[in-house]
Design a protein around this nucleic acid. Structure first.
Lengths: 243, 243
DNA sequence: AAGTGGTCTAGACCACAAT
DNA sequence: TTGTGGTCTAGACCACTTA
């Protein structure tokens, strides 16, 4: 006896569809127990490995929760966290078909960093910190002010690069493996220096993106990206669920 | 002959570790071909199903690329897209240990929506649109102005709810399944109405989050969340790679 | 024709939880 | 002890690519 559809997809996909259908229709309520693997084997006429694969994949996709020795349950409604993807400004500008240009404003090694900067790096002892400020232009209009502080212990040769030619992003990506990233997005008025570099008036709205990255337990970079509010927006389109 | 580690993890995990180790050490370069499943079976002394499961999982995790009839390859370095997670404002406020309160400013059915609103909904014919404006307070300080336009064909009874008691977010989540979400984040000065409702001065920096959601091919909701720039920031911490 | 990955099975043994 | 999910195998057949 086989209650699975006849289309040409693999059996385990049909089992997944069967399960999702029963959840979607409300026949199998939230947190209720599913039939056991062996019951599904009998009911659907497929092998246990096939049922098991279907249930395992549905579990890793967040639809089910399985407890060894107990059973399989319909997972509570997913948090539906919606995500914004932050990508490379250069790629983004070029994707829009615009012309990109970068201008290096500062590229230096700071021998004695301010205490608050050391704090951001979670340094235990005073170390030099590399520092860069780059302006990114889209068709000669400044859109992003990119300020980076880099841990020279993890990234060597940072201040010897020509970041008008090489993207800081690419250089860092190859220099050290990132294991963790922290973001903070806020909206603040431009200060005098930001206004001058981005060619706006002081007090104009800016979108500020703070990004801090780690390589293992060590802070690799501390970054601040300032976007002109009226010229830029972070965007994303996200597909939910997905079968 | 067995070159896998001796720890107590499942065999397929050891195979995965073996593969990841060879990639991580550079022994198997980017885009290079892995040994075939049968070769790994011989080399590692496990069954083909076990090798297959390991490679399948590594593929779905983005480490490998497989082409039927051709082979298995080390995937090119991942785009390292970094993500911001947007969560429910109410949960967020409560997580911080603050007191949340919501105030309904507008709750109405718009019989004849403006053309630009219809455009956002991609409506083919003129339909009524439900509309709500809610202010969210954190300890009696307004932090978010939430404006929603809702498709009444997908969500029934929206304008009959008491959104001071029920979160619009929760109601919508249960009313219609979201299949797609689009976000746009920008920074703009507050207009007169925003300033009045959020208790700031006109022109003050605001963080604007536009969210548009779909149920299948149909636009379900069009939302604008306005945050006071000085009182709020979107944040996230994200673990990379991770095995 | 030979080699690759993709699927599927029947049966086995295990760890775990409930009874 | 029974039933659950977790893993593993040997062998089979298939679809696909390359030569």
């Amino acid at each position: 006896m086989n209650t699975l559809s006849d289309s040409a997809s693999p059996l385990y996909e049909k089992v997944k569809d069967f399960v999702l259908g029963n959840i979607g229709s409300g026949k199998w309520a939230r947190n209720s127990r599913l039939p056991s693997e062996n019951e599904l084997v009998s009911a659907l006429g497929v092998s246990r490995m096939t049922v098991h694969r279907a249930l395992r994949e549905l579990t890793s996709e967040g639809h089910l929760r399985r407890i060894q020795g107990v059973g399989t349950f319909v997972a509570p409604p997913r948090p539906r966290s919606t995500l914004i993807e932050i990508s490379n400004i250069i790629t983004e500008i070029k994707t829009r078909g615009s012309r990109h240009r970068a201008e290096v404003v500062v590229l230096e090694r700071i021998a004695r960093p301010e205490p608050e900067l050391l704090l951001a790096f979670e340094f235990e002892t005073v170390k030099p910190v590399d520092h860069s400020v780059v302006i990114h232009f889209e068709n000669d209009l400044p859109v992003q002010l990119e300020e980076r502080y880099v841990n020279p212990n993890l990234v060597s040769g940072y201040i010897d690069q020509d970041f008008a030619a090489v993207a800081t992003y690419d250089y860092l990506q190859n220099a050290t493996p990132l294991t963790e990233v922290e973001h903070l997005i806020s909206a603040l008025p431009a200060n005098a220096e930001q206004a001058r570099l981005l060619n706006v008036r002081p007090g104009d709205c800016c979108l500020i993106l703070h990004r801090k990255t780690w390589t293992g337990p060590v802070v690799a970079t501390v970054n601040t990206f300032t976007y002109v509010g009226s010229r830029y927006s972070l965007g994303s389109r996200y597909l939910h669920g997905g079968k």
